[in-house]
């Protein structure tokens, strides 16, 4: 059992948890992830490590409540409680060095894993330009934290409810077009966002790193469910990644593979929501 040290709401669907796991906290490096399981019947959920405090033994993760398990976590797993399993750190760490000027693009939940990388890049001496975006204001978070570490921050929403209206790729293209020398780009977010960012940076020939969130079971190199095509070769996101050269990734395949269980995910969520509703009605009576 791993104690939930704190739980904080970042937006309507997104919460930040600090989980007590001292050994993971001590070993965690930027860009790595953990796998957690809520309870005996739970699935193994891979989540990027956002922060780790070796002194206090806490590991910070951010969860967007989109499916059954993440909804359940938001509804029933609170500070002081615990999750059953928590294993990590997993995956290859980010390569952080002083590249010069870097752009860090984060979309939606991708802002969570992007933030510590941007912070690491800043610490390593880079000039960091941040671009973060989401569908709307209530899905956006970490604006202040990103603002505190970025030399320049662009905030985007699809609907214009906060920041500028548009997509994260818009300022990316503008900056690259302005002929400023950009040495490296990190883009983390929905597959489609990473795909369009990769297309733009390819045009300008800027090395780009993406962090791939393919479906995983064990997260330790055993199932191959997370395989992605990089440079025409099959790679396992869990042990060869999760970060890869964006210009070599087959994003269409990634998106197709991510969607394979949509029907089942929907079914599990509907079943959960129905049971929750029933519980509520029973309590009302």
């Amino acid at each position: 059992m791993y104690t939930i040290l704190s739980k904080m709401t970042l937006s309507s669907q997104i919460r930040e948890y600090v989980i007590e796991a001292p050994e993971v906290a001590r070993a965690a490096k930027l860009g790595q992830f953990i796998v957690l399981r809520l309870h005996e019947r739970g699935e193994r959920i891979p989540l990027t490590i956002v922060d780790a405090d070796p002194q206090a033994g806490g590991v910070t993760i951010v969860v967007q409540e989109v499916g059954k398990s993440t909804r359940e976590m938001g509804d029933h797993f609170h500070a002081g409680g615990s999750v059953l399993d928590f294993a990590g750190p997993l995956g290859v760490p980010s390569e952080i060095e002083n590249y010069g000027t870097v752009i860090c693009v984060g979309g939606g939940l991708g802002i969570a894993p992007l933030y510590p990388i941007a912070r690491g890049l800043k610490k390593a001496g880079n000039t960091v330009i941040g671009i973060i975006g989401a569908r709307s204001k209530d899905l956006l978070f970490y604006i202040d934290r990103m603002d505190a570490i970025c030399d320049e921050l662009h905030v985007m929403t699809d609907d214009g409810s906060t920041g500028r209206k548009g997509f994260t790729v818009d300022p990316l293209r503008e900056i690259l077009s302005s002929r400023r020398k950009i040495d490296r780009v990190w883009a983390i977010g929905p597959a489609i966002m990473m795909k369009v960012c990769a297309e733009v940076t390819r045009e300008f020939d800027v090395p780009t790193v993406v962090s791939l969130n393919s479906i995983m079971i064990d997260g330790t190199g055993m199932c191959g469910g997370c395989r992605v095509e990089v440079g025409g070769e099959a790679k396992f996101a869990c042990v060869d990644g999760p970060e890869f050269d964006a210009h070599k990734v087959n994003f269409d395949l990634l998106m197709s593979r991510q969607s394979f269980y949509h029907e089942e995910e929907r079914c599990a969520l509907d079943r959960y929501l129905a049971a929750e509703k029933e519980k509520e009605q029973r309590e009302d009576r």
């Binding site: 699935e43 193994r44 059954k68 269980y261 089942e264 995910e265 599990a268």
Partner: peptide, 15 residues
């Protein structure tokens, strides 16, 4: 391991 043969009682699906 994940007991997908008992999905959705268990959370992990299999197709």
């Amino acid at each position: 391991l994940m007991r997908a043969f008992r999905f959705p009682e268990y959370d992990t699906p299999i197709k």
